[in-house]
């Protein structure tokens, strides 16, 4: 379990997340892509904390902040999905075209 191996796994998760966030039409599936990206970021962060930060607790602290970001993203995302559905009856991104150039 070398640092490189963990970072490659984290990169794979971020890559899958990028693919999902860009390709999915449904709002919730899009959010799953974002979640996977944050997942990979947390993994990379903890790997670096564990292998090359000498156990500085601020590394774990940053992990806690990442999880807060994830919770905020989910809560606001679900609220927006609910609102968009109520106002526009839209459940996929294609139905929101007002800001499209």
């Amino acid at each position: 379990m070398t640092l490189e191996a963990v970072l490659v796994v984290a990169a794979a998760l971020v890559g899958i997340g990028v693919y999902g966030a860009l390709s999915q039409q449904s709002f919730v599936m899009l959010m799953m892509g974002l979640e996977l990206m944050i997942n990979g970021a947390i993994l990379a962060l903890v790997a670096l904390w564990s292998a090359s930060a000498g156990g500085n607790p601020q590394g774990q602290m940053l992990g806690v902040v990442f999880m807060t970001v994830m919770a905020v993203e989910m809560a606001l995302g679900f609220a927006l999905v609910t609102n968009v559905y109520r106002v526009r009856r839209a459940d996929i991104t294609e139905k929101l075209r007002r800001l499209k150039g």
Binding site: L3, E4, L7, V8, A10, A11, A12, V14, G15, I16, G17, V18, Y19, G20, L22, S23, L48, W49, S50, A51, S52, A53, G54, G55
Partner: peptide
């Protein structure tokens, strides 16, 4: 586009640990 972006970001990020030398200071 999405597949290309996903694969591209994977290759880019996965190559980083082999290009950068991280300090070797394991946690307790």
């Amino acid at each position: 586009v999405a597949v290309a972006a996903g694969a591209g970001s994977f290759v880019l990020l996965a190559s980083l640990p082999f290009l950068v030398k991280f300090p070797d200071r394991p946690a307790p």
